[in-house]
Simulated assay, not measured.
Amino acid sequence: MKKVLVINGPNLNRLGVREPGVYGSKTLEDLEKELTNLGEEHGVVFTFVQSNHEGVLIDAIHEADEKVDGIIINPGAFTHYSYAIRDAIASISKPVIEVHISNIHKREEFRHHSVTAPVTVGQIVGLGLYGYHLAALALIQQIKGDE
């Protein structure tokens, strides 16, 4: 059975209460349940990591290279300046898709640039939590194509 790791960075544990006008009212738990259900439909197991600490995310990326078939990541604010997370993604052999709930290109200037996107297979922005579903479907298609 194929496995996908979903990594969420800083403040994403606050989904549902943090700026609901930007991020919506669903919680991280809601998202995880939805992706688990999507995985069951497609024969894929999703696992989840959320941390507000850069090193925890880097460790999760490194460990994933041996344990999963692909990664969906929302690095949160680390997107814009964490060369360490960028380098961790670049160091693994598994495909990674970057997701952002809001359209980072319509927000503050500092959010317009992603240092992590160039080392991913793709980036989905501005589609709310549905962006995770799209990333999951794209990743499922890519990793199941390897069978």
Results as ranks from 00 to 15, higher is better:
Glu32Val: 05
His100Gln: 06
His42Ala: 10
Val125Asp: 09
Gln142Asp: 07
Ile7Thr: 02
Tyr83His: 14
Lys106Ser: 15
Ala60Cys: 13
Pro10Val: 02
Gly39Glu: 01
Glu32Gly: 10
Gly9Thr: 06
Arg86Met: 07
Pro20Phe: 12
Glu32Tyr: 11
Thr47Ile: 07
Asp87Trp: 02
Ile7Phe: 00
Gln50Tyr: 12
Ile124Trp: 14
Ala90Pro: 03
Glu41Leu: 12
Glu63Asn: 13
Ser91Asp: 10
Gly9Met: 06
Ala77Val: 06
Ser25Leu: 14
Asn13Trp: 04
Ile92Pro: 00
His112Thr: 04
Leu38Val: 10
Leu134Gln: 13
Arg107Phe: 09
Thr27Pro: 15
Gln141Cys: 04
Val115Glu: 12
Gly9Ser: 04
Ile72Gly: 03
Asp59Asn: 10
Leu35Arg: 10
His113Asn: 11
Ile143Met: 01
His42Leu: 15
Leu12Met: 13
His62Asn: 10
Asp65Ser: 14
Ile101Asp: 04
Thr116Gly: 05
Ala60His: 08
Asp69Trp: 04
Val99Phe: 00
Lys3Ile: 06
Ala136Cys: 06
Ser114Tyr: 00
Val68Ile: 12
Asn103Met: 07
Val115Pro: 11
Gly21Ile: 07
Leu57Glu: 01
Lys106Leu: 12
Thr120Glu: 00
His42Gly: 15
Phe48Ser: 09
Val121Leu: 09
Ile61Tyr: 06
Glu108Asp: 15
Leu139Lys: 02
